[in-house]
Each structure stands twice: as structure tokens, then as C-alpha cells.
Amino acid sequence: MTTASPTRPLLELKGLGRHLTLARAPFSREATRTVSILDNVNLAIAENETVGLVGESGSGKTTTARIILRLDSPSSGQVLFSGEDVGRLDGRALKSYRRNVQPVFQDPYSSLNPRLSVATIVGEPLFVSGEFAKAERRARVLQALNAVGLQADALGRYPHEFSGGQRQRIAIARALTLQPRLLILDEPVSALDISIRAQVMNLLDELQQRMRMSYLLISHDLDLVVRVADRVEVMYLGTIVESGPTRSIAKERRHPYTRALFDSKLPAHPRERRAIAPIEGELASPLNRPRGCPFHPRCAMATERCRVEAPPLRADAAGHATACHMVEI
């Protein structure tokens, strides 16, 4: 994937791959197997940009996030941050990377330690960084809480005293304390109610404008991603099958899987009801990854070539890339 952007991206994934070696069953004569979770993932996020990563469960979205956060390491390929190889960072440089890249997880019920007060939870990144005196930590915690719309009286309280929406605000405040340049948002609103989702998305938008952060928004919710992302990456079984500017993806839907995702959206009004399900079958397990194009068993357009040869991701001049034999570039 080559974008026409002249400036260097803030974060870049280059040929990222992740394999797992399965343990051999006791007494089994079979050789150990390797399973591919991610395969040649390329992705770039510019300054102040929101990139949406969409796909169904098992597509490799969260593994990608974990590798970016250095909670997991790639089997091949690189993560570059401001041009530096993240895999080689250690000591102070790694600390500084971690300060710049902060996560917000899906479920604010499990991502906040129930035994710690809000002051401790939000202040923890500052404490771990070891660079701030107590008074400064407190000031920054307050500032972060105010930024997400919470008041000082939240400091001494515990997670169970807050509703889901408020907890997600606390998780966002924790991510903000070190003034990061990139937030990894892994399904940030899917655990929340509709009326609260909008509040949190609006908050994230405000914060991005004010603090000029970049976002990697990981979600299975196509509507949400199309609404807020500048670019969209569609993942299927560990590979990116379509990638490009949001408007162009939403309009053209070149890959049959992208089209299936759009067509599977539930109607917004009863008069838009669908008679039949738009696509059959489910995502295959990485254990029985189909040969050729990973999507071919579910694809109505699949030909003999799709069954044997995996299509490469090819981009057009506008940076809209598709991995499909049937799409002319």
C-alpha cells in the first residue's frame, strides 16, 4: 500500500506477521503446526488522523493492537513510530514510546482495577513513568479528569461507583495523562448503551481536535468507523483485504467482503427490511485457513484462480487498495 502522503506517517506497520506454533498433543505423531494469525499487514497512521480497522472476531484486529502496544511481538515485519523501529526500543526510548502510545480497551468493567481509587488508576501511568512529583501527578490527574468531564470528587471513589459510560471516561482519562500522540481505541464504545455511545464518541472527537492526537479505531461496527475515520482498513482472517480513504471505501465497496459487511448492516427503518441474509457462512478458523484467497469459500464471485492463488493488495493512484482478483485496478 502506497499513500501519496508526502510527510512521514506517525505510525507505520510494515509487512507485519504473527504466527503461533501449536503444542503437539501428547503421544501424537503429527509434526507441530504453525498457525498464521496476521499475514503481511501494512498500515500507516498520519499525525492527527483517525484510521479505522474493521473486521469480525478472529480477523486479527486485536492482535494488531497488541503488537503496536508491544504487548506481543511480531513474527515478521516491523512497527515504526516516527520512523523508529519499535521492536528495537529499550530503556528510556521504550518508556518514551509507551508514553506516546496509550490504549483504551473495550470493557471498562474489566479494564479498571476494582480495588484502586480513581486517583490511583488515572495516576498510574504518571507514577510508572517516574518523572513526576506527587503534586504534579495530582494536578495532571485532575486535568485529565476535567478533560473527560469528571470532577475532583471522583478522585477518592472506586470503579463500582460509576456507570459504564463514566468508567469509559475514566479509562480515557488514564490514557490522556501522559499526553500521548496516538490512542489505540479497541472497541471503545461497543460495551456501552446507545445514548452513552454518542457521548463518548463526541468526547473522543473533541479531545482529538484539542490535543492533536492520532487514533487507531478498532471496531466491528462499520457505521461507527465510516462516520469518524479518515481512512479505513478492512481485515479478514489476518490480512487486509481493502484499504483506503473512508469516502472512497463507503462509496465503492470494491472487495466482496466489504460489500457483504455493508449489506449485512441491520436496517435503520422497518421499510428498509431485507428479505434474505446477504452472505452465508462464517469466518473460517485460522486453523483451517482456506487456500488462495481467504474469503473465497463465502464469495459468490470466486473462480478457480481464487481457490489457488492469494490475491495481492494492489492500490490505485488515489491510495484505495483491494486484494481481489476480480477487481480491476
Binding site: S163, G165, R197, Q199, N202, D205, R227
Partner: peptide, 21 residues
Amino acid sequence: ASAAMANEGGGRRFPSIPGEP
């Protein structure tokens, strides 16, 4: 709120309901 989530051309702001249940 749910129609707005589904509206592709709606811009970046979502109409929300203030407060909590």
C-alpha cells in the same frame, strides 16, 4: 441516536442524550 450512528454522511458529531438512566 441510533439512526445517526447509521448515517454515513452525518459528520463527526453524534446527537446524544445527556445524563444517565
